[in-house]
Amino acid sequence: MVAEGPDDLKLELTEGRSVDWGPLKETARKAQILPPLLTRPGKVYDVTTPALPTVA
């Protein structure tokens, strides 16, 4: 895990992938969203805004 600050958390995964987690608020919702999101092809999985997760 890398943290630029308390509201900028990033998880480093295998194979060059990462998760932009953002602030700790809404952690339970982010944790629900992440597993299905990781099934999609991509390198960066962004759950900073759980209502609008993205894959790039």
Rank of each mutant, 00 (worst) to 15 (best):
A3R: 12
M1I: 15
I33L: 05
P53K: 01
K10F: 00
T39V: 06
G5W: 01
A51F: 04
E26L: 12
A3E: 10
T39N: 12
S18I: 06
P36Q: 14
A51C: 04
E15H: 14
T54Y: 06
Y45M: 02
V55Y: 00
R40S: 02
G16N: 10
Y45D: 00
T54E: 13
D20M: 08
L37N: 04
L13I: 07
P53R: 01
V44W: 07
Q32K: 03
V44Y: 09
L34E: 02
E4V: 15
L52G: 10
P35R: 10
D46E: 07
G22A: 08
P36E: 13
V47N: 03
D8C: 03
P35K: 13
S18P: 14
T54V: 07
R17F: 03
L9Y: 03
L34F: 00
A31E: 05
D20A: 07
R17Q: 09
V47Y: 01
L11N: 08
L37Y: 01
L52H: 09
T14C: 04
T54P: 12
V55T: 13
S18C: 14
T48K: 13
G42H: 08
D7W: 13
T49G: 15
E15W: 13
D8R: 07
A51R: 14
V2S: 00
I33N: 04
D20H: 13
R40F: 01
R40L: 12
A3L: 13
K10H: 06
L13E: 08
T14R: 14
M1F: 06
L13G: 10
L52D: 08
D7Q: 11
K25F: 09
P23T: 15
T14N: 07
P50K: 02
L52F: 13
L52M: 13
L34M: 05
V55S: 07
R17K: 15
T14A: 14
I33E: 02
E26I: 02
L52Q: 08
Q32W: 06
T49E: 13
G22Q: 04
A3C: 11
P53Q: 01
Y45A: 01
V2N: 00
L34I: 03
L24D: 11
A51H: 08
E4W: 12
E4R: 10
